[in-house]
Simulated assay, not measured.
Amino acid sequence: MKHNLDILAVAVQLVRELGEDAVTHSRNRLVELIAVNHHRGATFWRQVMQACESELARTRAVMPNTAALARDPGDLSLPPSVR
């Protein structure tokens, strides 16, 4: 069984690389492993999924106004709250 630090490290990296899609990615891995009856792997990815959700919630709480900035990377105009 993986340690909590391994789970957290995977979750943080997924959130950095995939952002909001990190939860979907970990959920897909979880479903794939359940389908092939791999319980230990499914347990790991369930915990990663929960850690991704927590990490995203923590990130949103720390930087609540960044959602508008990240909406469209090609849009360089300032959001209405900054103008």
Rank of each mutant, 00 (worst) to 15 (best):
P64A: 13
Q47K: 11
N37V: 03
Q13I: 00
S81K: 03
L30V: 03
Q50E: 14
C52L: 06
T66L: 15
E17L: 08
A61S: 11
L18P: 01
D21L: 09
A67Y: 14
T43V: 04
A51L: 05
E20C: 02
V82L: 15
S77D: 08
R71C: 05
E32Q: 09
D21M: 09
L14H: 04
C52R: 00
F44S: 01
H38E: 07
R27L: 14
A61I: 02
R58P: 07
H38P: 00
L76N: 11
V36T: 10
L18C: 06
S77C: 08
A61N: 04
A35T: 05
N37M: 07
E55L: 08
A22V: 01
P64G: 14
V10R: 06
N28D: 13
H39D: 11
Q50M: 14
I7K: 03
S77E: 11
A42Y: 06
T43C: 06
L78N: 03
Q13A: 11
A67E: 15
V23T: 07
P80V: 04
L18H: 08
E53R: 12
L33Y: 12
P64M: 08
V12D: 00
D6F: 08
R46D: 05
Q47I: 01
P80W: 01
L33S: 06
L30M: 12
R58E: 15
A42P: 04
P64H: 10
R46E: 10
L56G: 07
R58N: 14
N37C: 08
L56M: 14
V10M: 11
E32C: 07
R27Q: 12
H39M: 07
I34G: 00
V15M: 05
E32H: 06
T43I: 06
S54R: 14
V10D: 01
N4Y: 05
H39E: 13
T59R: 15
D72N: 13
E17G: 03
Q50G: 02
M63P: 00
E55C: 15
L8Q: 10
P64C: 13
M63C: 10
